[in-house]
Simulated assay, not measured.
Amino acid sequence: MSFLNDLLGGGQGNAAGGASLISVAGALIEKAGGVQGLVAMLQQHGLGEAAQSWVANGSNQAVSGEQLGQALQNGGLGPVVEEAAGKLGVDPGQLMGQLSQVLPHAVDHLTPNGEAPAPGQGGLDLGSLASLAGKLFGNNAA
């Protein structure tokens, strides 16, 4: 069982839980103004190198839930995290730990050519992110 499956509570509902995490990641990206907005906000709050690695081709630099939570809070996205944690019935700190694993994959998935789309160019494709949930969480139901 993967680390993310452990975080989501074991064997049942992992794909649904994973889809929820992907939805939260998508909401954060959307509220930040797209991939470019999220990367710019993370750069301003100390995670620029990591965020750039998520966009670029190659391996994604890891960040901790605490680092990500602090950057999102300082970037004005704290209320989005709080609301999502409430809807998912988890502690915001636990959600940040999960998102620190998922958000790099989501950004990477949305930037296949190693570049963030320019604002207004190629909107956020939540359908594309939904397919990522199956890859990350082993959706066997499909």
Rank of each mutant, 00 (worst) to 15 (best):
I29M: 12
A106V: 08
L95K: 03
G134R: 12
E83P: 00
A40L: 11
L7F: 12
G123W: 04
L110N: 01
A62W: 03
S100C: 06
P119E: 10
K135R: 15
S23T: 15
S20Q: 15
M96D: 04
Q121D: 12
L72T: 00
A16P: 01
N74D: 14
M41G: 11
G18Q: 08
L103M: 10
Q73C: 01
L68H: 05
E49Q: 13
Q43T: 13
A32Y: 02
L124Y: 07
A71K: 02
Q36S: 14
L42H: 00
M96Q: 12
L124A: 09
K135L: 13
P92L: 05
E49K: 12
A133F: 10
M41I: 06
F137Y: 13
V63W: 00
L136T: 05
A27Q: 14
L42W: 00
N5R: 15
L77A: 08
L38W: 00
V90F: 03
L21Y: 03
P104T: 04
A27H: 10
L124R: 09
I29G: 04
D125A: 12
A32K: 03
N113Y: 08
Q67T: 06
V102W: 00
L129T: 11
H45R: 13
P92N: 07
D6M: 11
L38K: 01
G78N: 11
A62L: 08
E115P: 00
Q94H: 11
A118L: 13
Q98G: 13
S100W: 02
I22V: 15
G69M: 04
Q101P: 00
V80H: 06
A130D: 14
Q43K: 15
G9D: 09
A25E: 07
D125K: 11
Q70D: 06
H45W: 07
V90Y: 01
V90N: 01
L103H: 03
M41L: 15
P92F: 03
N5A: 14
A116L: 04
G18I: 07
L72A: 04
L132G: 04
L38F: 05
H109F: 13
D91Q: 13
A85T: 07
L126F: 14
G26M: 11
G48L: 01
A27K: 14
S131W: 05
V90W: 00
L47H: 03
L99S: 08
G89W: 01
L136D: 03
G48N: 05
G123Q: 12
S128M: 14
S100H: 05
P119W: 07
G17A: 11
G120P: 06
G46Y: 02
A106R: 02
G127V: 10
Q36W: 03
G86Q: 10
Q121V: 14
A19Y: 10
K31P: 02
G10T: 08
V81S: 00
L21R: 01
L72I: 05
V55T: 05
S128G: 14
N57P: 02
G78P: 04
A16R: 15
A84D: 03
L28W: 05
G114S: 06
G122P: 06
A116H: 01
M96K: 02
G76I: 05
S128E: 14
M96A: 10
G58S: 09
G93D: 11
L42G: 00
Q36R: 14
G11A: 13
E66M: 13
Q94D: 10
L124K: 09
H105S: 11
A62E: 12
N57C: 02
L129D: 08
L21G: 01
L38A: 04
L28V: 13
G33K: 08
L88M: 15
G37H: 10
